[in-house]
Design a protein around this nucleic acid. Sequence first.
RNA 1: GCGGCUGUAGCUCAGCGGAUUAGAGCAUCGGUCUACGGAACCGAGGGUCGGGGGUUCGAAUCCCUCCAGCCGCACCA
Length: 572
Amino acid sequence: MTSTYDLLNARLQAAFDAVAPGADPVLRTSERSDYQANGVMALAKQVGRPPREVAHEIVKLCDLTGVASVDVAGPGFLNLTLSPELLNDQLRALLDDPRMGRASTATPKTVVIDYSSPNVARELHVGNLRSTIIGDALARMNRFAGNKVVARNHVGDWGTPFGMLIEHLLDLGEDEAVASLSMGELKAFYQGARVKFDSDEGFKERSRARVVTLQSGDVETLRLWKIIVDQSVAYLSQIYDLLDITLTAQDAVGESYYNNMLDGVVSDLDRAGLLVESDGARCVFPPGFTNRDNEPLPLIVKKRDEGFGYAATDLAAVRDRVSNLHADELLYVVGTPQAQHFDMVFAVARMAGWLPEGVRCEHVSFGHVLGPDRKMFKTRSGESVLLAGLVDEAIARADAALVSRNFEGDEFSRTELAVDIARSAIKYADLSTERQRDYVFDLDRMLAFEGDTGPYLQYAHARLRSIFRRSTSPWNENESTFVLSAASERHLALGVLAFPEAFDLAFVSLQPHRLCNYLFDLAQRFTSFYEACPVLSSEGKLRDERLALCDLTARTLSLGLSLLGIHAPEQM
RNA sequence: GCGGCUGUAGCUCAGCGGAUUAGAGCAUCGGUCUACGGAACCGAGGGUCGGGGGUUCGAAUCCCUCCAGCCGCACCA
């Protein structure tokens, strides 16, 4: 089906085109009417005529019969009020549309999303939280839009730490090591290796030697390395499950995957005449980047010691994703501190011709998670806070809240519910503010059942579903006609109809918080409606209409939340 | 020093392809109610949109500058 916004926009566009081809109506939802078109002022400036005169001409040119009535207001705003027939038609169409009016794209793209990307052999911690949550939301939104998503969990599975990790594994004995790793005791394993590395000269020597054997491709060493990687990835999957993240073990395509492409990166850059030797390192100097002494800043592809820098890996990844995965779009969900690095990698990739003009490539950056002191979130002893612990804590608090509110149900369903609530609290808090900002991690606020939180939205959904559970006489869905005589009914209906453009706003700009804002607004529209309009106790056609509104609202909330990676339970 | 991000009500944040009286949540205060789930609803107070210039009929939104905070700036990722 065509969304209400698209339908309205198409009509306006035709009129705008008649005045000046391509002029944007700038259509948006409005507080003063249903929709407003703000494009007249820009158009008037363009054609050099008084705005109100142009506005009236647009009104005359625009065929809105059966769609909307229009008023010219202020300097030249077009205030649009949707016609009752249109509202009814659109809402009825939504009754059998699981996509709530947002059609799947006619031209699917392949979108490679790089997210989560923790270091192997280290536990997931708050530093990985945002990339994981935001990346997964973007993946879900892309899939819903109709694109093909290739998730890339760019895990850190290569480099110097593996020397000590492998030696530590040998010291423990393989069986013992596997046992402890498979139990998720990655932190203890890593720290065990670290302590020996720092205190035991002999161990340090062995570790260094082991890095060399690993990088030279020694078969036995690689086998041991793979044990550590596989066990870590298996552990990661557990945490992803706990958080309901869609990443799988197959998506864990780490740094090591690109090893055999690195020589090609260097030689091809060299052949293209882009490579410059500087202080013994092989570099590319993309224009526009300078260091603190105002000298050109290099992207170091191969280090003085002949090792490859991470820039080489990132370049190889760009290349692989474009030419082998046929990506139309590359997204890197990585923290803001790496902005310059990615700018340079992308610039070099463009210079080398590995990143064609038509391929969208973006660093989806985000701010820090802060502790209560507004500094980087750390434990009291200065260690990074583990994700598993954070989620467990949230689950425990959600569960306690359910108990104190006399949740009716068995312990099993209560626990499941607590997990749903905990996930939604953490994810929604992360997704609902603008990505670039830092935010303070505050479980109490996230888990609050009132206010702009995940649990509040889940609650709104659960209330809606309970209406249908408690209904004793059937809902004649096919009889539902949307008259919308009460103001709050109309307000709610407009909210439901606005889902497609709200989704697109968030989707196109890669800003999930816009979808959050929309869903919260929708939930509030529902509660106002629910307060003012009896549903089950109303009768006849009015009852069918109100039930239909409830159904549409519940499905919109559930769908919207699912695109954020949040499950909306039937009751809570 | 250069670059990036941030600075909007007491607190946490939307709004920033300029546009009709600057919004929400929390907190505060005051109402509603034998409530189809009160984990609710309605309302009030509270803001020189960091400061100062500029462009414009019109700027929280665009440009310049200053201030504050955070981050980055060659061989760790």
